[in-house]
Design a protein around this nucleic acid. Structure first.
Length: 644
RNA sequence: GCCGGGAUAGCUCAGAUGGUAGAGCGGCUGACUUGUAAUCAGCAGGUCACGAGUUCAAUUCUCGUUCCCGGCUCCA
């Protein structure tokens, strides 16, 4: 065969000699394309630009515009990191070094831990190697030879044992570096223009805590310095919004060392916000056909044996406590309690669906290292509800839940969200509880519900809870981060364990279906997400202080007090700053507290019964009659406007 | 839980190769009476996280504990 045929994405064809490289084809199309090229896609597979084409193929040249090329680029940067580490610390053993959503990492086994200073040194060495313009070259080794070659590198040996075929590929980076790797890579280090090492962390080999702990170096890389800087700026922005920092600055909540980690104290200002969240949710329960219930925080341990938590959830529960008659257990979940209410009397099909909702506080033992602000705590309150219904009712119930979740998100100013449907493995592994027809019914109901609402859902096989399939809703916050929020989960296990029943039309007992659902998930965590989403500048209806009256001199204190009183009578949370300070200072402090409205009152306003309105975002709005301002702010509060 | 880093005034942080500490902000007092992001002056605040050890001497060095931070694993 004297030539092979290459089909390009636009459908055009080229005849080229075998052994032609994708980069040559790119060059023939345009030197500019060759310059921009990062990697090739040959017959749908990513491949090195320098790897010769041996037979007819479709070929696409990927440039920074293609998302896949960034992964390759970052993977190559990870190799650069490994090469730099080996030059500086030759005794280090290499683990794996993949690209991740925000950059890349590489895992190392080394007796001495890396320090932040090492990180700087390593990054410097990376730039030095980058400047050598070393090629990434693909070479092949027989498995048996490879195992010998990597005898010293225990992790690589394991990987080769597990993953390599008879002959496997390796990539060199100059004369001194070679790594077992599937590739592909960028042609050489001159392609790598913008990268930065970010942090050091411990990480278990293969993610298993029984394995050896390695040292992971995280970094990030972008095609341009500009993108890198934008990313670093985003990290800075996220730090500024950190709910732990704002929680202290705005006096919203605290964690007390004397009380214990992961236990949250809501201060008065945080308490007001939390009350809004709770009131709204309880009102919604009642509007949407839920019954509001209250249940205890502890129960006999026997209850948790019946529910099964004593077995499969024990490592997440607080220790049992001994009372005179029996052992008691602080509740890690609300479901058994709601089930007991359901079971307290006989249910007819006419009673269904039964929807029992609660803001239920649960306690879970979380390992100390995982606790984080409001996002991961040991005591938290779920907006938890359980729906007991017939198979015929299930689809409508799921639709209502999803609608409810979407309304919740919209109310708090989240316009963007994603949904995931986690399904079982069709019984392949036996790790899922419940009958196949139950799984079928539930998964179909979930799928039809999202279809009816035209929600885009990502289906994730084999990710269901062992007791049933679920839909998870993830919101996207103001700076593009995703947070797991609402969850709607089927449960086939608990109705069986508790022998739940309803009497059907046929006069016989049937087992109801049960759905767990939580929309905020945890009020604490949702609160934290809100703090970060709004960077502490809460919508007026949530703001702890909605307006503050700022008299310019002591002469207006009397009038300012009247203004405040009228605001309070109109149901507005108002404060008065009657200190003998300059109005500039009062404004500054009110601004830093992110109070939505500052009402400046001087002699002029006092004379005319007015207030000079300053908005935290839009600044001075000029003077207006107090009654007019009250009408405006009431409108914002009553409509739960998310911006003013 | 594990790896690494950290804890100094109410807050943010500086500091000494071991000789018991400092700034800014805040607080208090007084003066100023001020028009849209910091008025001035004075004063008072610290078992340098906690507990042991080494030392003539420990906030500083060593060990342990607690809590916090970045990760791993897990998760609302």
């Amino acid at each position: 065969m004297s030539s092979i045929e290459i089909t390009l994405p636009d459908g055009s064809r080229q005849s080229v000699p075998p052994g032609t490289r994708p980069i040559d084809v790119a060059q023939s199309i345009s030197p500019k394309l060759a310059e921009a090229a990062v990697v090739a896609k040959v017959n749908g597979q990513l491949q090195d630009l320098n790897r010769p084409l041996e037979s007819n193929a479709t070929l696409q040249i990927l440039t920074p515009k293609d998302p896949e090329s960034l992964e390759v680029y970052r993977h190559s940067t990870a190799h650069l990191l490994a090469a730099a580490v080996l030059e500086l610390y030759p005794e280090t053993k290499l683990g794996i070094g993949p690209p991740i959503e925000t950059g890349f990492y590489y895992d190392f086994d080394r007796a001495v831990p890396f320090t932040p200073e090492d990180l700087e040194k390593i990054e410097k060495r990376m730039w030095e190697i980058q400047k050598r313009h070393l090629p990434y070259e693909r070479v092949y080794t027989k498995k048996e030879d490879g195992l010998k070659k990597y005898a010293e590198a225990w992790m690589k040996c394991e990987l080769i044992q597990e993953r390599a075929g008879e002959v496997f590929s390796e990539y060199t980076l100059g004369p001194g570096f070679i790594d077992f790797c599937r590739g592909p890579h960028v042609p050489d280090t001159s392609k790598l223009k913008a990268f930065k090492l970010l942090s050091i962390a411990g990480a278990y080999w293969k993610g298993d805590e029984h394995n050896k702990q390695l040292q992971r170096i995280y970094g990030t890389a972008f095609f341009t310095q500009k993108e890198l800087e934008a990313y670093l700026k985003r990290i800075e922005e996220a730090k500024k919004r950190d709910h732990r920092k704002l929680g202290k600055e705005l006096d919203l909540f605290s964690v007390q060392e004397l009380a214990g980690p992961g236990l949250i104290f809501f201060h008065p200002k945080g308490g007001i916000i939390r009350k809004q969240l709770e009131d709204w949710m309880r009102d919604q329960y009642l509007k949407r056909g839920y019954s509001l219930v209250y249940t205890p925080h502890v129960a006999r341990f026997d209850l948790w044996k019946t529910s099964g938590h004593a077995n499969f959830y024990s490592q997440n529960m607080f220790s049992r406590m001994e009372l005179d008659d029996a052992e008691y257990q602080l509740k890690p979940m609300n479901c058994p309690f709601h089930i007991l209410i359901y079971k307290d009397r006989q249910r007819s099909y006419r009673d269904l669906p039964v929807r029992l909702g609660e803001l239920g506080t649960v306690y879970r033992y979380e390992r100390s290292g995982v606790l984080a602000g409001l996002f991961r705590v040991r005591g938290f309150t779920q907006d938890d509800a359980h729906i007991f219904c017939t198979p015929e009712q299930i689809e409508n119930e799921v639709v209502d839940c999803l609608q409810f979740a979407a309304d919740t998100l919209r109310t708090y100013g989240f316009d963007e969200y994603e949904a995931e449907l986690s399904t079982w493995d069709n019984g392949a592994s036996g790790k899922y509880d419940g009958a196949p027809d139950q799984w079928q019914l539930a998964e179909n109901a979930l799928q039809r519900a999202v279809d009816r609402l035209k929600i885009n859902v990502k289906r994730i096989p084999d990710e269901a809870a062992f007791y049933g399939p679920k839909i998870d809703v993830k919101l996207v916050d103001a700076i593009g981060r995703k947070w797991q929020l609402s969850t709607i989960q089927f449960d086939f296990t608990l109705p069986r364990r508790f022998e739940l029943e309803y009497i059907g039309e046929d006069g016989k007992a049937h087992q109801p279906l049960m759905v767990h659902r939580a929309l905020y998930g945890s009020i604490e965590r949702f609160f934290g997400i809100l703090v970060e989403h709004y960077a502490g500048a809460f919508p007026v209806w949530l703001a702890p202080v909605q307006a503050i009256v700022l008299p310019i001199t002591d002469r207006q204190i009397g009038y300012a007090g009247d203004v405040r009183k009228q605001l309070e009578e109109a149901g507005i949370r108002a404060e008065l700053d009657d200190r003998s300070e300059k109005v500039n200072l009062k404004i500054r402090e009110a601004q830093l507290q992110k109070i939505p409205y500052m009402l400046v009152v001087g002699d002029r306003e006092q004379q005319n019964g007015e207030v000079a309105v300053r908005n935290r975002k839009h600044g001075d709005q000029g003077a207006k009659p107090l009654s007019g301002f009250i009408a405006e702010i009431r409108q914002l509060i009553d409509s739960k406007a998310v911006s003013e």
